[in-house]
Design a binder for these strands. Sequence first.
DNA 1: TTGAAAGCGCTAACAG
DNA 2: CTGTTAGCGCTTTCAA
Lengths: 346, 346
Amino acid sequence: MKRITINDVAKQAGVSKGTVSAVINRKNTVKNETRNAVLAVMKELNFRPKGMARNLKQMDIDKSIGLIVKDLSYPFYTAVAMGVKEYANQKGYLVFITSSENLHEREVKFSQLFSSKDIKGAIIAPILEGTAEIEHLFKLKMINYPFILLEDVKGIQANVVSIDNIKAMKLAVKYLIDSGHSHIVHFAGPESSSHAQERIEGFRSAFSECHLIFKQEMIVPIGSYHEIAYQKTIEYFKKHKREEYPTAIVCFNDQQALAVMDALNELKLRVPNDISIVGNDDIYFARMFPVPLTTIQAPMKELGMRAAEILIRNIESPVQLPIENVVLEANFIVRQSTNILNNTDV
Amino acid sequence: MKRITINDVAKQAGVSKGTVSAVINRKNTVKNETRNAVLAVMKELNFRPKGMARNLKQMDIDKSIGLIVKDLSYPFYTAVAMGVKEYANQKGYLVFITSSENLHEREVKFSQLFSSKDIKGAIIAPILEGTAEIEHLFKLKMINYPFILLEDVKGIQANVVSIDNIKAMKLAVKYLIDSGHSHIVHFAGPESSSHAQERIEGFRSAFSECHLIFKQEMIVPIGSYHEIAYQKTIEYFKKHKREEYPTAIVCFNDQQALAVMDALNELKLRVPNDISIVGNDDIYFARMFPVPLTTIQAPMKELGMRAAEILIRNIESPVQLPIENVVLEANFIVRQSTNILNNTDV
DNA sequence: TTGAAAGCGCTAACAG
DNA sequence: CTGTTAGCGCTTTCAA
């Protein structure tokens, strides 16, 4: 079944397509009678003029950018999106937000759609599953499509704005050690996430700089989805004897931390009295958790703003700009989910 | 400064535009040498092929819909977006999410962009400021662009999927009255929001069905932004004498409720002992507020799904479909922010 | 392996 | 007021 075009309407209405066009564009050069006749045919045929064809003529009218996050329901990305929007809007750009749902295939589709719809550039939180498939990024590069990554992707030279997760984790672990904790574990995020990898690395490297020694079993992968993280936390504690319990858990992110705290509550373990919890990101609601969460504050909004800033600069530049790689630093926020075990070092 | 086109590249590279096109589309019919030469020129000229022109030829390849919410940082809309996405993805549609930031002008721009970028249809949470400007909606109708509204807009016949806010408010007020509250006020939302209007109407009409009488001063407009709502709550209580304090406040939404609770805390008024609080929406974090919030649960996800369902049905229908108007109902969720003052009626 | 030419569906002059 | 015509910037045959 072929698409209805302006020609079909013109023919059916017994006018030329120029006239139909005039009606569509609300020119006041059309006799009322004619207009109504055309309108009637348009409706009858359910004619939907093709936007691409309408805009082929006029030079770029719109200023817009796109954002691809991994999971819109996670407040971290909402905050990043706010930053992107704030900067972009101020520069007169509209932003389209999309979510890949952690599906690489969807990221690919969106990146294609962005360019095919003449959205001027993209900010992408890339999925890195297995051997990073980055062909779509190369395609973008080939057509000089401006884009910024929110995580470093190996194998491609591109603009990256990210957060120094390694350093941030070190900060957290150091704080716990200084507070007298000696049995600390890390509940890690999904393996496919480079954030997760960096946090593991940061956790591990914190040990190389102190008297405690790192063991592989300190890394417990439980993901970040509430249900799963909750279950795995329960399992973890059921599997261990009381005396093996850690005194502190550093979580992959705040969302996971909430699931962990829910599980601990179920297990009748008190936070922070029995176990201290540290989150990651400092989402808006972290301070309102049942026990306000000690966490690592990621500059989410700034992340978005910087990405938008670089992107727009690239979009507006007639020549290729050098690649930029900015790394933002996180802060450590102490609230009530962590306990100080001794006062000797603090 | 004019746009670089494929012709510029062809000329500069000394080939025909057909060849350049083959390079762009990664055909393997191009000699390596030629390809590299073209690629070099593309990069040198910073050539960005126009997506609209590329797609003019091929019939609609993509299936996509757009969503315009008012404020993406408000979890209500995030939840709606999740519903839209879930349904749309399952049907093979990608969704573009945008936020008007409560600016009518931005809603207009997005609606235009959607159609001009051949995004197949839109779900719109309309801004209704002053005399509803709905010309943009008429434009959409004229070109038979499928769209669904998330609030009823007077003056236009369109598909609407909404929540029965009036009924929901009645539920809440009735519950409070039955719990022995007799001095109840409503902290209202922004006047421009039809949600706000409906909630006021629901609040008022609850009184017509009981022994208490409604007074205009029971409606206190404080908006929904945290800072402002917080301030206005403080002001409200400073302006009144202790014995004039309400025993219960029904809030415009959960976000506002949180601000109100923060303010009450600052004022050393305890929830629910001194004052009961009822929210609206039941956002994900409502159960994790310092005092878990009693609230009216809006079927946010379902709202999104139903809207997406109707939209896609309209998109895919070759003929005009009759207009639909679906109204979803809310549930009342009792948590710990409300107090029962007597037990006579409950 | 490349170039030439014919559109894609619409808009925008310009005649009439 | 309406029809005709020439593109918009690309892709896609089809010859060469």
